[in-house]
Design a protein around this nucleic acid. Structure first.
Length: 858
RNA sequence: GCGGACGUGGCGGAACUGGUAGACGCAGCGGACUUAAAAUCCGCUUCCCGAAAGGGAGUGUGGGUUCGAGUCCCACCGUCCGCACCA
């Protein structure tokens, strides 16, 4: 018997699909009345080559796309390239290759690799974000948001990466280190461009409620990220001095206005304007602020969490009782949140009590926990943050915490000293980057007109190609001519903005561009109205906040600008797990590739030397640990269908899967078993016969499998769908074949047709080969999904376990749907049951129809 | 510290809304085929006692609810993820 030969079959099937153009997206007109379905995987960064870890993401999308197409949807399944970014520039610096050349060559390589996976992608819609055609459209909508006040410029303290020579967003700083370079991040003040996402904080929060096909985890992460909190702003006036004479004060934000009478100090951020003012007069204060800025973000320091303060010598007055409170500069107060100033209530805030104990400030409890005696209750080193009754607080005495908050706010508002407000943790995103390989910000700076947007007819603002990477810093700034242009406003001398957009911006809208990647406007309204929202978006959970939140923001902003109709870009989201793999390390610390080691006598050794190697742990595939597996090598040995099947079968899709050659072998065995099952099919017409038991059993297995696989695909449980297919194969092999009755042969043909169609989303090449082998015309890629017969998918007889006092003692057979009475009599008559009931009295019989019988006896 | 998820055989993992725990795969063991090996095919495989029939235990630990708990409730232990001095 011939072996299945994927090396020969797989390219043949891909050629058939390409020739027939089955994966070209159909226009709404061509699609007739078919409903649309948009499947999208987060697009790749063209870093060089793909490995099987990348492949899992695209294979999952492909399974969905093929399944939905078979179900009669008009499917859009495109792919593009997130092509701007630092690695291209680093390659330019290190190897002297132009970023564009490096990027497009990588794209060519990776496109060919991806095509080997047999993905049902419409390659006609492919684009790269570094195509001027794409980023020019991005500049157009960027200017639209600028006109609408959602893009603005301001001076800001930024995170400066001294190795990559660029600004990083807070989100790109991990434990005080640059997320790419790993360098210690410094603070610098620069004029930056920002996206005003904070204007949409509330709408983004509310919108989460509508995303019922998103993982709860991701919605929760976004909710926390937006960080809405209710509280009050209020002002503490200076007690004396020149500031008091000008009726000045310190504005603070609090979520606990109920504890105002417990206030014992005011703390301001080292970055607060008042702190800077104090520092101008006091070298000591200046030194303290300097110390705060230097320290800060490293994990160890925050863990230690030492509270540091500096008394400014200033005092303010309590708004209600007029007490004098000292103003301190404190290292734990953040300028970016609230007003950059707080009032300290040590008894009811843990940070405040640590601060108060350290500097000897008073501690006055004002919230009495339930059951405590007001005369004796006190706080030691642990603040009380629970519920209780307000005391020591004049007009608030006796109120609960929530009522006291409302009463305090009401009085502040009545006296014009403050007001209730909502504060968000979410901050605007700084999008300026001092790099070459990114989308130029389409602004010209003019001494007379200020920043002016480049007129639409002059877009795109293209990157110059002749750039010099031999100097550190931004090549656009060093370019001899590029930035010198006339002001579009007054015609006078102007200068281009030399910052480029953070590459995250490129991915904020690409899904909308796919609706019509050649449209004149950035987003074709008609095409987007048809295709958006994305029905199923698939990608890694690492994008749970940044990319997914900003894409939601930009979608809303563009909707408000009349460019789109949808509010939410991604109706369904699935966050898939990675492919992890064992790592191997020599005693000298050098990592070894999987191909360089082998198991000998239960011990891993380096093949070349026979030297023992250590296992370095199962980790995400990465070049640095050399545990990547190239798709080509797998395709060469087992074919791509085996690889697709394995990465989907061995773990649930949302969890990581460990790549093992044994697992791949298992998948390959299945591929081969399926193929050989289609060998030598009997010719002729056969008829179903319900009285033929063997035939009926096979038909039941077929229809049950169709149902189970369909349900699994609908709920993203690919691993269980595949398990059911394995089971079905076992049943099929066990069923009679040679010399069987006409009814069995009819059931067999039905089973094989279903099998070919059911495996098609997972192992599409194999499925087409099988279909042809069965003597069928056409391609499965164009054929409908199989339907199941409800009656055949359900059993007509059930096997029910019988428990006696909760222990399983026997099994009985009963017709499906039999009533409790009938089942009870069958059970009580069963010999296996009566044997265990000897000497006992039946007290109670519980029958769950079609499920279980439990007899309580004693 | 705050928020969340999860603990099931040697391993990856199944188990619908509380109803036969361990589907399916991997590894392992036994057998067939073969001069032999690979490949393939068939069988066994949670643990303990037993030749078997059968019995007992069992889903991180301890309690609880229930005729019945992997699933629900309480407490604890452990692992992973997110945020992190957010007032």
């Amino acid at each position: 018997m011939a072996r299945y030969n994927p090396k020969e079959a797989e390219p043949r099937q891909r050629a058939r699909w390409a020739e027939a153009g089955v994966f070209r997206t159909r226009t709404p007109e061509e699609a007739g009345g078919k409903p649309k379905y948009y499947v999208l995987e987060m697009f790749p960064y063209p870093s060089g080559r793909i490995h099987v870890g990348h492949a899992r993401n695209y294979v999952m999308g492909d399974v969905v796309a093929r399944y939905k197409r078979a179900q009669g949807f008009n499917v859009l399944h495109p792919l593009g390239w997130d092509a701007f970014g630092l690695p291209a520039e680093n390659a330019a610096i290190e190897r002297g290759v132009h970023p564009a050349k490096w990027t497009y060559e990588n794209i060519d390589t990776m496109r060919e690799q991806l095509k080997l996976l047999g993905l049902s992608i419409d390659w006609e819609r492919e684009f790269a974000t570094c195509d001027p055609e794409y980023y020019g459209k991005q500049q157009a909508w960027f200017l639209e948001l600028y006109r609408r006040g959602l893009v603005y410029q301001r001076e800001a303290v930024v995170n400066w990466d001294p190795v990559d020579n660029t600004v990083l967003a807070n989100e790109q700083v991990v434990d005080g280190l640059g997320w790419r370079s790993g360098a210690v991040v410094e603070k610098r003040k620069l004029t930056q461009w920002f996206l005003r996402i904070t204007a949409y904080a509330d709408r983004l929060l509310e919108g989460l409620q509508t995303l019922d096909r998103w993982p709860d985890k991701v919605r929760l992460m976004q909710e926390n990220w937006i960080g809405k909190s209710q509280g009050a702003r209020l002002e503490f006036k200076f007690a004396d001095g020149p500031l008091a004479a000008h009726d000045q004060g310190v504005e603070v934000y609090t979520t606990r206005p109920d504890t105002l009478y417990g206030a014992s100090f005011i703390a301001i951020s080292p970055d607060h304007p008042l702190a800077e003012q104090v520092a101008r007069a006091s070298a000591e204060a200046a030194a303290f602020i300097e110390e705060c800025r230097r320290g800060g973000t490293s994990e160890a320091e925050i863990e230690a969490g030492e509270k540091l303060g500096f008394f400014t010598g200033l005092e303010v007055l309590h708004p209600f009782d007029g007490r004098r409170l000292p103003v301190w500069i404190a290292n734990f107060v953040l300028m970016e949140y609230g007003t950059g100033a707080i009032f300290g209530c040590p008894a009811h805030d843990q940070r405040d009590i640590e601060f108060a104990r350290k500097y000897g400030l008073p501690v006055t409890p004002v919230v009495l926990p339930p059951g405590e005696d007001p005369a004796t209750f006190d706080v030691a080193d642990e603040a009380y943050v629970g519920p209780g009754t307000i005391f020591h607080s004049d007009f608030l005495d006796g109120l609960g915490v929530e009522d006291a908050k409302a009463a305090a706010i009401a009085r502040l508002e009545a006296e014009g000293r403050g007001k209730g407000t909502t504060v968000y943790r979410l901050r605007d995103w700084g999008v300026s980057r001092q790099r070459y390989w990114g989308c130029p910000i389409p602004i010209v700076h003019c001494a007379r007109c200020g920043p002016v947007g480049v007129p639409e007819d002059q877009l795109p603002v293209k990157l110059p190609e002749d750039v010099d990477f031999s100097r550190p810093g931004n090549p656009l700034l060093h370019h001899p001519t590029w930035r010198h242009v006339n002001c579009p406003g007054c015609g006078g001398p102007g200068e281009r903005e030399t910052d480029t957009l953070d590459t995250f911006v490129d991915s904020f809208w690409y899904f909308a561009r796919f609706a019509d990647p050649t449209a004149e406007e950035p987003i074709s309204r008609a095409a987007a109205d048809y295709w958006l929202a994305v029905d199923q978006y698939i990608g890694g959970v690492e994008h749970a906040v940044l990319h997914l939140l900003y894409a939601r923001f930009v979608t809303r902003a563009l909707k408000d600008a009349g460019k789109l109709s949808v509010e939410e870009p991604f109706a369904g989201l699935f966050t898939q797990g990675m492919v992890v793999h064992e790592t191997f390390r020599r005693p000298d610390g050098r990592w070894l590739e999987p191909g360089e080691v082998e198991a000998r006598g239960g011990q891993w050794v380096e093949s070349a030397t026979g030297q023992a190697v250590e296992l370095g742990g199962v980790e995400k595939m990465s070049k640095s640990k050399k545990n990547v597996v190239a798709p080509e090598s797998v395709i060469e040995s087992h074919g791509v269908d085996s690889a697709r099947l394995f990465v989907l079968s061995d773990s649930p899709p949302e969890r990581d899967v460990q790549w093992t050659s044994a697992g791949l072998e298992g998948a390959w065995r299945f591929v081969h078993r399926v193929w050989s099952e289609f060998e030598g099919q009997p010719e002729g017409a056969f008829e179903h016969d319900a009285s033929d038991e063997a035939a009926l059993a096979l038909r039941r297995a077929t229809h049950k499998t169709i149902k189970a696989v369909t349900d699994g695909l609908d709920s993203f449980r690919f691993n269980t769908s595949i398990a059911r297919l394995y089971e079905f194969m076992n049943a099929l092999k066990a069923a009679p074949a040679q010399g069987a009755s006409s009814a069995v042969l009819a059931a067999r043909v039905e089973a094989l047709e279903a099998l070919a169609k059911l495996v098609a989303p997972f192992t599409p090449h194999l499925a087409e080969e099988a279909w042809t082998r069965l003597g069928r015309e056409g391609m499965l890629a164009e054929l409908p999904w199989p339907a199941y017969d409800r009656t055949l998918a359900a059993d007509d007889e059930k096997v029910l376990p019988v428990q006696i006092n909760g222990k399983r003692r026997a099994e009985i057979r009963a017709p499906a749907g039999a009533g409790a009475q009938a089942v009870e009599s069958i059970a009580l008559a069963d010999e296996g049951v009566t044997r265990h009931l000897e000497g006992l009295t039946v007290r109670k019989v519980i029958v769950v129809p079609d499920r279980i019988v439990n007899i309580v006896a004693g």
